[in-house]
Design a protein around this nucleic acid. Sequence first.
RNA 1: UGGGGCGUCGGCAAGCGGUAAGCCACCGGUCUUUGGAACCGGCAUCCGCAGGUUCGAAUCCUGCCGCCCCAGCCA
Length: 559
Amino acid sequence: MSDEQPAVERQDFIRDIVRDDLASGRHREVVTRFPPEPNGYLHIGHVKSIALNFGIAEEFGGRCHLRFDDTNPVKEEHEYIEAIKEDVRWLGFDWGAHLYHASDYFEQLYEWAEHLIRSGLAYVDDQSADEIRAQRGTLTEPGAASPWRERGSDENLVLFRAMRAGEFADGARVLRAKIDMAAGNINLRDPVLYRILHASHPRTGDRWCIYPTYDYAHGQSDAIEHITHSLCTLEFEDHRPLYEWLVEHLPVPSRPRQIEFARLNLASTVLSKRRLLRLVAEGRVSGWDDPRMPTICGIRRRGYPPAALRDFALRVGVAKRNSVVDPALLEHAVRTELNRTAARRMGVLEPLKVVIENYPEGASEELEAVNNPEDPGAGSRRVPFARELFIEAGDFMEEPPPKFYRLAPGREVRLRYAYLITCREVVKDPSGAIVELRCSYDPATRGGDAPDGRKVKATLHWVSAAHAVGAEVRLYEPLFTRPDPGAERDWVEDLNPASLRVVSEARLEPSVAELAAGERLQLERLGYFCLDPDSRPGRPVLNRTVTLRDTWAKVRDRG
RNA sequence: UGGGGCGUCGGCAAGCGGUAAGCCACCGGUCUUUGGAACCGGCAUCCGCAGGUUCGAAUCCUGCCGCCCCAGCCA
């Protein structure tokens, strides 16, 4: 027993704590919670927290609750509750029957507040917010006691009940904990526990006109749910003493422990609710689900698979150091997942016409193409081939530099799944622009292999001109032009004007038209894409999720 | 002499007194019907700095330096 090795390797300090607590018998099972306030949409930063909380519960055989921290009715909306549930589910996590709301506990929380009053640990303060602020002191100076601090508990009780009964206007009075106005930790300088808010709550309607603050509600909600490990971000470190003070002075059914970790920051994007809202409000993006947005709904529309997001969260790790993660790590996780799972298709973004001169006019045939070389079980499909094709304009150069080994005059290349072709002639319009390539094909190379064993250095994607379907393809680049938007000027100034490029006349192999919105695919040699909900029958709209790694681009840009 | 945290490769991140994991990025190479994928190899004599303890320190002690959070009746 004593020399038993842990089954899981050490991952982070939080899992260490959980493992120790289980091993020592401090807890029989682990219970975590993801506690969003329903006041906005979830974004990639939340994925870290979601994956941490649900992941730990899963790994240690415990459970994770989804709890809406709905203590401030003026900021919260039902719409967000549903959106958040959808996002968490989409990520692949399941809270089972454990869906809760802080508002479920309003009555209990209220009773405990009276308990605090009776214990002489809370008092009703008649001062205004400004007066309270003025008395709080500063970071270096202690605060001063409120004139109402020594009010007797009977009077406090009467007043607090009157607060609840709606006898006072918003802001007229608050309930404060009586702790220490000289504490170095400002959170302990008699924090506000209840405020008067004559506002309708998305769930409790007009039943209440006093609402608990986060500080008062959170720890007690954790205790009610028997949360063992309450994981939150670093900025709440200062609140932990208050969290513990409350849990110690109240007859709560369990003693949860708050543990803080560093929130996720991603380079080249913004994650604050305020900034995201501004992007939407000012029309800088098409909406919360714009595929360039770091919101979960944006990411979903962009085509990122949930498994990739979970993998990303694991790769990012959990620690207490403030850090900024390179989006390349996210893209890596996305490519890894999509490489395994995405069906391959061909499509041309910038079509260049190719006429196979020795291919019979009016004829066509179907060639077999593998759906995913990484997954034999994915099968194959048939791709139409004919005399007139489109290839990618960038795959031809009239005067190729040394390392360019795609198509060029007189050069032979392979058309993927099809034939070896040789460029015989370049046709230009009066302005000198290339409009067409006249090529020949070798009928003996059907499928792509030459019987004589000769090799070509390039394989190009292509599409039959007559069979291809037209499509709109949306190409995305980072929303910002620098990793740290706003570092030197207003962050909006750092918005990337080229973050969206629309290709309206892409040509895709016909089978793409059969895909449903949301389906993901790889356009060979170009990248991973997914069908946008804007797609209509016969007119697909594709979002480029992420490009393929492009070694040639590096070589080209270097020389 | 306000309180609370954090400083290990370009970016994340292990390391918990025994002589610097891993991942991403980057750089080579092999292979290839995606210049994709896969595979092989390279990439911190050094852990913010300075002292000290020790046979031995990124890990312990002391002192500096730097960065982040806190003065909402937001969460």
